[in-house]
């Protein structure tokens, strides 16, 4: 890809990693390289013919052990727009034959000569375990409460496109921080690029020692909203109620939900973001989700570009004969 080559040139940096497992592992320069590459790919999705031959002949597998529509679809479109051959495997733990381990399954896929494995799993570290034991490149599409690097990268791309910068911005992430892989990846990415991150939620949804990772922590949603350039809302899952983490969804909405009144106390040009799927009327009021500050659908559009960049970079430089 000429555009991507230009982007790499501009950054003066070559991608050297086999896998994309998390933003904890990436330097600020590597994150900027992915964003620049994504920026150059973004335009492809706006063309009438949305396809370039960058990954022609590569085989990419979506290996999802957890239900997902938008992330899986986003990766699939990204692969197809780069001309890779793409297959989807939706595997619940129960669909593994008795006695077969995930590693058995991955070794079988490797024997089928696939180039890139995109892995989503409910348990933290599964993509890392797999990446250590396969020559294929692994992209983490979300592992438990650990990381979701492409989500954070698309968040960064969205903020950068909207605000023109990331450094020095105040970003508040509000919701279930404890169980959120998005919060962790966003925290790594945003702090590495120089943003100030505030994490907000009730103490029951705040993981211990998170402030040691460079975030400001508050239980007071008003404090998180005032002065913020970006408000990132996280999905509250119904099952958290059962674990006594929040007394009720109603209580959560009243204390922490972003509604019209709370939005009025924010900066007029604040960006409202959400990784989806939205729980309308819980963490986010419909008026706000669909209102002028919302860039939620831009996030979705940018997701394809970021995933094209991720697939392109982990696939390595094109071979000479190509």
């Amino acid at each position: 890809m000429a555009e991507a080559a230009v982007a790499r040139e501009a950054q003066g940096l070559q991608w050297t990693k086999k896998d994309l497992l998390g933003l904890e592992d990436l330097s600020a320069e590597e994150i900027r390289l992915v964003l620049a590459t994504a920026e150059s790919f973004r335009e492809i999705s706006l063309r009438p013919i949305k396809k370039v031959p960058a990954l022609r002949g590569k085989t990419v597998v979506n290996l999802f052990f957890e239900p997902s529509t938008r992330t899986r679809t986003s990766f699939e479109l990204a692969a197809k727009r780069l001309s890779a051959d793409m297959i989807n495997i939706t595997a619940s733990a129960s669909s593994l034959t008795k006695g077969e381990t995930i590693l058995d399954m991955v070794r079988n896929l490797e024997a089928l000569k696939v180039d890139v494995l995109i892995i989503r799993h409910a348990a933290a570290g599964v993509p890392h375990t797999i990446a250590r034991q396969t020559n294929a490149s692994v992209i983490n599409a979300g592992d438990g409460a650990h990381e979701h690097p492409t989500q954070a990268l698309l968040d960064l791309l969205t903020i950068q496109r909207q605000k023109g910068r990331i450094e020095g911005l105040k970003v508040s992430i509000i919701g279930d921080i404890a169980h959120s892989r998005v919060a962790r990846s966003d925290l790594w990415g945003l702090t590495k690029l120089g943003a100030c991150v505030t994490l907000c939620g009730p103490p029951t949804l705040m993981p211990s020692h998170i402030e040691d990772l460079g975030a400001r922590v508050t239980w007071d949603v008003a404090e998180a909203i005032t002065d913020a350039d970006v408000l990132m809302l996280l999905r509250i899952q119904h099952e958290r109620q059962e674990a006594a983490l929040v007394p009720s969804l109603r209580e959560y909405r009243l204390r922490y939900g972003l509604d019209e009144a709370r939005l009025r106390s924010a900066k007029p040009d604040v960006l409202v973001m959400h990784p989806g799927p939205i729980n309308r009327g819980v963490e986010l009021d419909s008026y706000v989700a669909d209102g002028p500050n919302s860039v939620i659908l831009d996030q979705v559009t940018n997701g394809v570009a970021v995933r094209m960049a991720a697939l392109f970079l982990v696939s390595g430089p094109p071979k000479v004969e190509e």
């Binding site: 592992d143 438990g144 650990h146 962790r184 020692h209 990772l213």
Partner: peptide, 8 residues
């Protein structure tokens, strides 16, 4: 801190 970082 380690469990928080690893999401475990």
């Amino acid at each position: 801190l380690v469990s928080t970082t690893l999401g475990l």
